[in-house]
Design a protein around this nucleic acid. Structure first.
Length: 129
DNA sequence: CAAATGACGGGGT
DNA sequence: AACCCCGCCATTT
């Protein structure tokens, strides 16, 4: 194969791992950059997640809007088009944003893994869903 | 090659 | 809660 320059290669392993995780986030649920990185096997690489998502072409089909910053904060500065777009897309699938924030306790994506339980401290009062 | 730059996170004030 | 600062890391200047 003709060797391609690394700077041109669109998808390395880390990118694929990250996108795979983001694609797993169910409709109506959100996750955070840090958690996505963790689940992608890239602990402490939250920034990398943001960078990967920022390069997504429009209509990529990847649910990037389900990824928010720590504490449920929408990463885009309030008032920017991107910020509104994300809030709108979240609202359309039943995830309300209040002052650029989503309630992770209510809409945070938690699989049935151990790490998730620790992070969100789910007790036995987990009724709905 | 050094410095700046981010769709980040966490801790301290 | 708002801010600032620093650690982190791939890219860009």
């Amino acid at each position: 194969m003709t060797p391609r320059s690394a700077s041109q290669r669109p998808a390395d392993e880390a990118t694929e791992a990250i996108l795979a995780v983001v694609r797993q986030i169910p409709r109506g649920r959100v996750s955070t950059y840090g958690i996505v990185a963790e689940r992608a096997g890239l602990p402490r690489r939250a920034r990398l997640v943001g960078r990967v998502l920022s390069k997504l072409p429009p209509r990529s089909g990847v649910p990037w809007h389900r990824v928010v910053a720590a504490g449920g904060r929408v990463a885009f500065p309030p008032g920017t088009p991107a910020h509104r777009t994300q809030c709108l897309r979240l609202a359309r699938e039943g995830v309300p944003t209040l002052r650029g924030r989503v309630e992770l306790g209510r809409h945070g994506w938690r699989s049935h893994g151990d790490l998730d339980r620790l992070l969100w401290r789910i007790g036995d009062q987990d009724t709905a869903d």
